[in-house]
């Protein structure tokens, strides 16, 4: 029997080594795997390279991992936000490295890693600071930059539900980087609201097939949902 489910968050993040490259899903807090990141912080791995769209919001999730001093480098598209004070302070103090990647290049580099692509030419960034040091090529009269795939040791992803084979469905804009990060990492770890029985997910509706998933942990339904149906923040409180 195949079962990728683990009972505890600590088991889900076990073995993540110091110095690992970890992709963290989410756009802002939508799809942000807060429970897994909290477990990683408790697990203690340090000198991490984080690949994520943002560099932490508020004081939770990735921001808390940064604040704990576990992150050596952040590869992201949009670190500076109204609520990115944790990253801002570390960056200004020279305590964390930053690699800025345009959001579409970030997504495509992650996708390319999962799809076994060696490199690709993209028009994004031509003639900008992003182009410095990159090979440029003219194809059919248009200029492109060579970009390489972005691999990771681990991906931490948040989805709505999984079965024990690791098939995933997401919810609304919480999907964002989940499917491509799941494919790009050597080990993909997913937190879900609930694990459903094998066969309960409509195969036509599976977004991330279980082939891309290694570990699944159920963390319970979020406050704004009831049996997977949106009930609103007020109804929940």
């Amino acid at each position: 029997m195949i079962s990728k489910t683990v009972d505890h968050l600590a088991d889900a993040v076990a073995g993540i080594e110091d110095g690992a490259t970890v992709m963290v899903g989410g756009f802002g807090l939508a799809g942000h795997p807060v429970a897994l990141i909290d477990a990683l912080r408790e697990q203690g791995a340090s000198e991490l390279t984080i690949v994520s769209n943002n560099a932490g919001n508020g004081d939770t999730g990735l921001a808390a991992l940064l604040k704990a001093g576990r992150v050596k480098k952040v590869i992201c598209s949009f670190p500076r936000q109204v609520d990115s004070w944790v990253f801002d302070e570390l960056y200004r103090a020279g305590a964390v490295q930053l690699e800025i990647v345009p959001q579409g290049n970030l997504a495509e580099r992650i996708r390319a890693a999962g799809a076994g692509i060696g490199a690709f030419y993209t028009p994004t960034g031509v003639g900008t600071l992003i182009a410095e040091g990159k090979e440029q090529r003219t194809i059919d009269g248009r200029d492109f930059l060579l970009e390489y795939p972005l691999h990771a040791d681990y991906a931490l992803v948040s989805a709505l539900a999984a079965d024990r084979w690791g098939n995933l469905v997401y919810r609304k804009t919480g999907r964002n980087f989940g499917p491509i990060m799941a494919a790009a990492a050597r080990t993909t770890i997913v937190q879900v609201d609930q694990v459903v029985p094998l066969g309960a997910l409509d195969p036509e509706a599976v977004v991330t097939p279980g082939i891309f998933v290694d570990r699944v942990v159920a963390v319970g339904e979020r406050p704004w949902l009831h049996d997977g149906v949106f009930v609103g923040a007020e109804a929940a409180s």
Binding site: P79, R92, L98, Q103, G125
Partner: peptide, 14 residues
Amino acid sequence: AIPAVGGAMDLAIG
């Protein structure tokens, strides 16, 4: 300044 590009470069050329 902390640079933050997001999707602007992709939108601009796309």
